[in-house]
Amino acid sequence: MTNESIILAGLAGVLFSAAPIVFAVIGETISERAGVINLSMNGTILLSAMGGFAVSLGTGSLMLGFVAGAAIGALVALVVAFASITLKQSQVAVGFVLTLLCRDLSYFLGNPIMGATGPRLPQLVVPGLAQVPILGPLFFQQDIMTYLSFAIVILAWIFIFKTNAGLELRGIGEKPAASYVRGSKVEGLRYLYVAVGGALAGIAGPMYSLSVKAGWKGTISGLDGIGWIALAITIFGGWNPIRAALGAWLFAFLQWLGLVLQPSLPGIPSQVLQVAPFPLMILTLLLVNVGNAEWVERSLARLPEKARKRAAKLLRSMRATPPAALGTPFEKD
């Protein structure tokens, strides 16, 4: 293989391994746009990975594995919705509990199928397009779920920003009282979007256990932590599907880079390079959020006019502001 084709294969692998994170991040973005943080992401992905793998192993059907994963994700999300929307409990608290509960459930119930060899999602080469230089190997020699990960980004973006239903979705997350007055069924819609978001995150699970990291290996499946990453990328993405997907690809790219650079950095153990994206993630979260901090505005005000405008513009371009009603329950009166 030439150098060029090795790099192309690596980058195609980045898109492939980022695909489940894309699904999870889009799911969380939809849920948070509706005003509900689903903090259970890490447990959802583990439980749906185990459940999806178990169903596919039992039935021999890949399709049913993904359906099971989506159902598990939606179910967990509905518990978050019920606790926070109907029972008015803290979303963060119930989400955190579910994170740990689902993780332990996946390890406990998955014990008998640990290490089993199950079905695996086949590669699906797009005839014709796959032969296009550079673009072919990058985009058109993937599997079906990776293609869907591209599609879901665009569909979610169109839905959120270009449709009436998307406008309503943004409304119930920004100003639920105003939406209610205009006739939106705020609580019902929040249930719906939290469930849809959870189902998308639930699809991420089988994408690992049936494709990216095929199989179920319990605590050494290497999936513990991915849900937390997805939550951080959702913020990085500023609740915009395209920016969120870019975050997921950037994360996967950095992890790949860590592996590639490993041989030339013998002093650094591989475990360290695996977590290398995290300091960068914190730094970007800082850049994305620092514009919202009060002291920044105060110190900007002291700068001369020209410098202030330039600095403010720079901060605004990076800044992400969460949906105004994120995390708060909706009271009709």
Binding site: L39, W228, A232, F278, P279, M281, A293
Partner: peptide, 17 residues
């Protein structure tokens, strides 16, 4: 307090670090 990073996400990142 100074960066406006929610303690949940800052804390999670710092756990990995």
């Amino acid at each position: 307090t100074f960066g406006g990073v929610n303690e949940i996400f800052g804390g999670l990142g710092l756990n990995f670090v």
